[in-house]
Structures are given as C-alpha cells and as structure tokens.
C-alpha cells in the first residue's frame, strides 16, 4: 500500500490491541512515533531504497508465476538456491518469530532489533493484503501495466496502492482519513462481525498464517485487479466503485490480523 493504506491498516489494528500488546508496542515504538503505531507503518517503504536496508526490498511482495491464480510458498517464496525465504510471507514469518522469541525470554545469543521487527511486521502484514503485492512476476505486480485512472496516466499497481484510496477519500470521506477509518471500523462491527473471528484465527492455533493472506490476495488480483484492466485501458467509476469494497475489506482484514 501507499502511505494512506498503511496508516489505515495500523490505525485499525491499534483499536484491537489487547492491554498487554498495546503496552509492549508502545515500549518498542521509536520516539518519533509519539506512541502511535500508525505514524511509523510506512517506515519500511522509506528505508527500502536505503543502502543498509536494500536486502528488505524483496520482502514487500510475492512474485507469482504469470497467470497462476494461486499461491504456493515453495514455488513463490522459497529461493532454494540461497535457502532464503525472500518474500512478504517469509518476512512475516521471520519477524513474528523474532518478536515471539524475545517475548519468550531474554535469549542472550540473539540480539534482534525488536523495534525494526515490529515496524517490518506491521508494514508487511499490510502489504500482503494488497492483492497486487502478490501479483504476477511478468508485469511486476501491475507496475508495468500502464492505465489511465480517470484522466491521469499511471500503472495498475499504483492504482491499488494509492489511487483507489485517494479517490475514495475525495468522493466519500471529505478528504479526511479519520472519516474513512471510522467507516471501515463501523463496517467491521456491523457487517463483518461474524467474519472477524475467522480472519483472526490460523490453523493449528499458529500466531500468523501469511500463506492464507497471500492466497486470498492472488485470487483477488485475478478476479478484480487484473480483470478489465488491460494495458492502455482507462479505469473510471465502473472499476473504482466495484473495487473500492475489495480495498476497504483488505484494509480491515490487514488491521484485524495485525492486531
């Protein structure tokens, strides 16, 4: 997501944190966050092109083989030649493990940077819910699909990261992110309340299940993001109004699952 998407995801998550989790998060946040997790949920994007963090760039997405509308961890994430789990689901597993290890007790031999672990985890849980962050390798998750968003020339990935949300803010939420967040929170309690417990739980009571999040995203990418968005097409109300509910639900799911 862009700045707005990460802010919304983390703001929603903050509303669902337990007392223990809120206390731990506030202890881990950098001073610059002033106690607000949402204020630093884009940090991973800011450092992505910084020399010292260049290794983190591949952790924001999954490269799905072209036209495969499913996700397979070993096929899409595990780089067996380098024994690396170089994708967003691997990143979520890794930083969940780092925070759990630290919580389980001060293990001297491991000196993880838990503040970075929290910020990367919060960012990646958001990203894996953006369908085109699990998009096709061939079109770079929609980055190389040039389209028009109303009159503006852009690419399909940017439409999903940013343009749909910005158009929604202008059209429905008085350009006020808090109003959009409140609307999504109302949706969670009024319309999706039965789904929340399903969203929250993972098989075998595991802490996170990013493979499920990624499978949902590639399916949505094929059904909604890529559909009716061929290179050179102009996307307007027809596309915007039918895709906005998908975006808002993915932001809600990302927030509830992060919490």
């Amino acid at each position: 997501w862009g700045k707005e998407g990460h802010y919304v995801t983390c703001k929603i998550a903050q509303g669902y944190l337990s007392e223990d989790a809120l206390f731990a998060v506030k202890q881990l946040l950098p001073d610059s966050a002033e106690g607000d997790l949402a204020a630093v949920c884009s940090w991973a994007d800011e450092v992505r092109f910084n020399y010292h963090y260049r290794w983190s760039s591949a952790l924001h997405y999954v490269d799905t083989p072209d036209f495969k509308c499913n996700y397979e961890y070993c096929r899409d994430c595990h780089d067996s030649s380098k024994h690396k789990h170089r994708c967003v689901t691997g990143g979520i597993y890794n930083y969940t493990m780092q925070l759990k290890t630290a919580e389980a007790g001060p293990s001297s031999e491991l000196n993880y940077n838990l503040t970075e672990a929290l910020l990367f985890l919060s960012h990646f849980v958001g990203d894996v819910h953006q369908p085109l962050h699990v998009g096709f390798l061939g079109d770079l998750g929609g980055n190389s699909i040039t389209v028009r968003w109303y009159r503006r020339k852009t690419n399909l990935h940017h439409v999903w990261d940013t343009m749909i949300i910005q158009s929604a803010l202008k059209t429905f939420y008085d350009s006020n992110l808090s109003i959009m967040i409140q609307a999504i929170q109302r949706n969670i309690t009024d319309n999706w309340s039965n789904d929340v417990s399903i969203w929250e739980h993972c098989a075998h009571n595991s802490t996170a299940c990013p493979d499920r999040y990624a499978s949902e995203s590639i399916s949505l990418a094929c059904k909604f993001a890529y559909k009716n968005a061929t290179p050179g097409s102009t996307l307007e109300d027809g596309y915007f109004l039918s895709r906005l509910p998908i975006v808002e639900k993915r932001l809600a799911q990302g927030g509830v699952r992060l919490a």
């Binding site: 998550a13 669902y16 944190l17 337990s18 223990d20 989790a21 206390f23 731990a24 998060v25 969940t96 925070l99 759990k100 919580e103 389980a104 007790g105 985890l121 849980v125 969203w199 929250e200 739980h201 802490t207 996170a208 509830v256 699952r257 992060l258 919490a259």
Partner: peptide, 16 residues
C-alpha cells in the same frame, strides 16, 4: 490478532 498472540504469551507463562 498477531500482536495480541505474540504479547499474550508472556502473561500465560507468568500464570503457568
């Protein structure tokens, strides 16, 4: 759910 799960474990150990 992820952060609540991670940071709840400490309380559980304390209670155990």
């Amino acid at each position: 759910a992820i952060l609540n799960h991670i940071f709840a474990s400490k309380t559980r150990i304390a209670q155990a």
